[in-house]
């Protein structure tokens, strides 16, 4: 394998003690539809969702600058590389129900799993409440593995580019 890091960033990483050193081995996973995807924790950063705007590129902050709190989340990456895509957990889980699930069945399903619906996302997809951080990841995995839902995934924050 080769290291094709930008030279200026490589120097910066050396000066700062290497950001890559904070990338832990794979510890967790999530379900993207039916695909189980691994996650790598990035301990150098924290996602802070307490800002008035919430949002955009201001979410990720150096871990040393954020004390933690109810509206923070650990940062994960999609791969072992320090530049792989980052993602974080602002709270909430997106569940997909079997097509055509009626209201009574949905209500019973949510009650069985003690879920609080936040809003419908189209016909058979719902956002349900969950605390920010790993609590929402754990809930999503539990719901998916229960077999009661077609899919369950955390409501991820992830970078998207305005083009």
């Amino acid at each position: 394998m080769r290291n094709r890091t930008f030279l200026p960033q490589a120097l910066l990483a050396l000066l700062l003690g290497s950001a890559a050193a904070g990338l832990n081995a794979q510890q967790r996973y999530w379900y993207d539809g039916d695909v189980r995807r691994p996650l790598w924790a990035d301990d150098t950063q924290v996602a802070d969702f307490s800002g008035q705007r919430g949002e955009k590129s201001r979410v990720l902050k150096p871990a040393t600058l954020v004390k933690g709190g109810a509206l923070t989340s650990p940062v994960f990456r999609d791969g072992p590389g320090e530049k792989s895509r980052s993602r974080a957990l602002p709270g909430g889980v997106v569940v997909t129900l079997a097509p055509g699930t009626d209201e009574a069945r949905r209500t019973a399903l949510f009650a069985r799993h003690a879920l609080e619906p936040v809003r419908a996302l189209g016909a058979d997809m719902w956002l349900v409440a969950a605390a920010p951080g790993v609590a929402s990841l754990d809930l999503a995995n539990r719901l998916h593995e229960s077999g009661d839902f077609r899919t369950a995934a955390p409501n991820w924050w992830q970078p998207r580019a305005l083009k």
Partner: peptide, 13 residues
């Protein structure tokens, strides 16, 4: 504004 998966899915629906 948020870049949350749920908000993207919501807006497209």
């Amino acid at each position: 504004a948020t870049r949350f998966d749920a908000d993207i899915a919501d807006a497209l629906s």
